[in-house]
Design a protein around this nucleic acid. Structure first.
Lengths: 233, 233
DNA sequence: TGTTGGCGTGACGTTTTCGTCACTCGGGCG
DNA sequence: CGCCCGAGTGACGAAAACGTCACGCCAACA
């Protein structure tokens, strides 16, 4: 499931897109005013943005330029929509770094498929090279971990463990899952090694160690917002 | 620079595309018959395929399906071209997993930009997460190394060393470069630790160790084609 | 309030990994 | 042919990383 932001001032269009996206299993947000885009993107960190060029408040192309100017939003794929079908406009959009471009009227089904095609490629990128969540940066390429920009060096096992935990911060990772992913144990093994490594990880993370949260009876979870309560049943 | 395969039976189109691609700094191959596609792809391993649906010999859609059926070619992005502009066809192509779809007549500039947009995303995937060269596969995500599909487990230092060597197989990596990249030594340090690790690496690689080549007086290089002579000045 | 089971923690012994060193080997050169 | 210097190699000790265990704590539940 991916999070998609639709920027369009025509409610009909937005609604149509939302409907199709949700049918594909995606989460969908809508904004109508260009000025709302940056704040919304920063808050919700969508996986993809569908952006209409014609907007009230702020021109769509300007919005796009601002998205590309900020390092926090630069890597988010953007699909542009427009009523104009002039080739020059299309080229303009693609040249600036848009990932795709559709002219109205378009088939919502086609949009959905183009979105899927782009997400299929980008999903890998964000998940494989670097995992960045809040003040944390997990750099797989150099096998380094940064907290607020400061490097913390971890052993191979610690790194793998943290990597699995950070891969999905919204899920609780069970003990057996972690033992499988990090240690390669296929069947359930009674061992306290996991506990020990969690402890060592917390030690090295120092103040940040509180983000590694125990879910009693199940496993562990990496939570970013520590004020947010856990979903305990 | 990326390698692009254009599949089209109209020489005009192929030539036009080639011209634009080369202007963008890409290498370009052309084939006209659908039956030539699979062999050509397997031999040259292009980074992207531009595929016309209407082909002599074999229907373009069949070619595409075969590309997607084989694990060796599955991940190569495909852009489809067609004379028909019916929405159903377009959807058909995208649904099957094409990365983009253009209808003739199209602006060659737009095609070039769409190619660039796709390559921008895919480049990262292949270069960051996995380095694959010939029979070697360096999997950064799981910190594993495979030779002919068989896993070889390396220590952290060995892995880093090999990663740097494989990152660029056409360059000789100097001793000081390796000491900087792997060990983090900023200034030149007199140490034999590099030699020792090269030795250990060769031992673990076994028969494949011969690809780690000494460049006397300079450093080391990972060469894939061992029959190819080194560029000694 | 007492019990219980899961988890945190410190300590310990083992194994792995690492860097250094001394010695050997061999290519390049006079 | 003999020298020289850079690289290959085996051994060794130190340090790091790892897994296990015993003990204590505390949340959950009766």
């Amino acid at each position: 499931m991916s999070k998609i932001l639709v920027v369009d001032d025509e409610p009909d269009i937005s609604e149509l897109i939302s409907l199709h996206m949700m049918r594909e299993g995606h989460e969908c947000l809508c904004v109508t005013n260009g000025l709302q885009v940056m704040p919304t993107v920063l808050e919700h960190e969508p996986d993809l943005v569908v952006l209409d060029i014609m907007l009230p408040g702020q021109d769509g192309m300007s919005v796009f330029k601002r998205l590309r100017a900020d390092s926090r939003t630069r890597s988010i794929p953007v699909i542009m929509l427009t009523a104009k079908s002039q080739v020059t406009d299309k080229i303009n959009g693609l040249e600036l770094g848009a990932d795709d471009y559709l002219t109205k009227p378009f088939s919502p089904r086609e949009l959905a498929l183009r979105i899927t095609a782009i997400l299929r490629r980008t999903k890998k990128v964000t998940h494989v090279s670097e995992v960045k969540t809040g003040a944390f940066l997990l750099d797989r390429k150099n096998m380094k971990f940064f907290y607020h920009g400061k490097p913390i060096d971890l052993t191979t096992t610690e790194f793998k463990l943290l990597a699995v935990l950070m891969e999905n911060t919204s899920a609780v990772h069970t003990r057996s899952e972690l033992l499988r992913e990090v240690w390669g144990y296929s069947d359930d093994v009674a061992t306290r090694t996991l506990d020990t490594h969690i402890k060592r990880l917390r030690e090295k993370l120092g103040e940040a160690g509180k983000h590694v949260v125990t879910v009693r009876g199940t496993g562990y979870q990496f939570v970013i917002d520590t004020s947010e309560p856990l979903t305990t049943s």
